[in-house]
Design a protein around this nucleic acid. Structure first.
Lengths: 216, 216
DNA sequence: AATTATATGTGACACGGTGTCATGTGTCAA
DNA sequence: TTGACACATGACACCGTGTCACATATAATT
């Protein structure tokens, strides 16, 4: 987490630093980004940077969590909008995110997202979901999950417990992320990736076994 | 890819270098590993390293591809063993891999795998699957997929095209990887992660929608 | 006003890792 | 003997990081 000092900074200076960081993290992945570039861009001395952040990752994950919080909010409001329909709201989330990336003229958000998804790993993914280090963020996300699962309408779903719902959400998330990755990797364009995602949702809904004898 | 020079090396020297690299990549992720450590361990001068490899990543992905090839072979032989049953063979693949990691006394393979999975990203995942840079490896993997899909018995599966089978495999892969990650992240122990994986397979098989009216 | 405490700013520097390059060595063929 | 080629080597320039001693500002205390 950024230090108290960072939050005491005048708003403009703070925003200026964040903007510079966003530009750098749009240009390069966390691993390839350099503090040197950020402080040059933001015109702050090296020593100051370390007064605000532990290191590069500290700043990165702070920015990432801000974006993630907005995404969680959107997921929640879509779930509510669609009366708790998990599949429909997930699909709209995917579509609208994709649409936002594609029509991002400046390209800053898109490039940032590209670097996130193409370098997505456990630490990043679970920062999007469950921050391991920061207890406050962790609790925030836990709460989101509780609320989110409360909003989901399970009456149309073929699941029989909270546990199964959690696993379904886990599967959906994995598919969602995979498709974002394929989009950013250039493996599929907007139309293809939308088609793929929808197809995969249909497979999930439909079920993959014809012989139903295995059901318990 | 390693250079011709590397492959011309006497076998022992080559293996020695690979061993040292494996130790380093077991200790640290690709990003955190250092060439300095590898050459110190392998007792070769710095210049020689660059005679064999373009950089750290070149060596890393070479080693990774060797491991991946073995995994693909195992997936294939399990698919054959189970008469093309995609779910059963995937489950056995997961179980046996997990078992191997847990009973890896030396721990070298486990730690290497841990670094792979916890730092899994697009580039690594698709090296496990589809090498973007190297045409030879790419073709090798393409061929694997063709063969693998040929072996899968679709008669018990509720899918209606090659495309759907490909997507199903894609979903299964995502779930497989997610569970490995959760295991290595310590979020679940062997029993839990096995339980989770099996449950998720059941959800897939069963299908998630009760109202079947949406089926086309 | 003088003093002390506390918070913040600053950039030179030591450290460690990377990739290169000039030079050295070995081998084989003409 | 000479030249051509493949390979070996480690010193070195370069770059980014994180730290630290010192500077400055602001508020609180005497």
């Amino acid at each position: 987490m950024p230090t108290k000092t960072f939050f005491n900074l005048p708003g403009e200076k703070r925003q200026n630093l964040i903007d510079a960081a966003l530009r750098e993290f749009s240009r390069a992945s966390l691993a390839d980004a350099s503090i040197a570039n950020i402080i040059k861009d933001a015109c702050i001395p090296r020593g100051s940077f370390y007064q605000y952040f532990e290191d590069k990752a500290d700043l990165f994950f702070y920015i990432l969590e801000e974006h993630s919080a907005r995404n969680r909010e959107q997921m929640m409001s879509l779930a509510i909008k669609h009366q708790g329909d998990l599949f429909t709201s997930s699909a709209e989330f995917f579509e609208s995110s994709l649409h936002r990336f594609i029509h991002d003229e400046q390209g800053a958000n898109r490039e940032f997202a590209r670097n996130i998804f193409l370098n997505m790993n456990y630490k990043i993914e679970y920062k999007l979901i469950l921050d391991v280090k920061n207890p406050t963020t962790r609790e925030r996300i836990r709460e989101f999950y509780r609320n989110y699962m409360g909003v989901i309408d399970t009456s149309g779903l073929n699941i029989h417990s909270e546990e199964e719902l959690l696993h379904l959400i886990k599967i959906l998330r994995a598919i969602l992320i995979q498709n974002f990755i394929q989009f950013f990797a250039g493996e599929a364009d907007e139309q293809e990736v939308l088609h793929n995602f929808r197809l995969e949702l249909e497979l999930l809904k439909r079920g993959l076994y014809t012989s139903r004898s295995h059901e318990t």
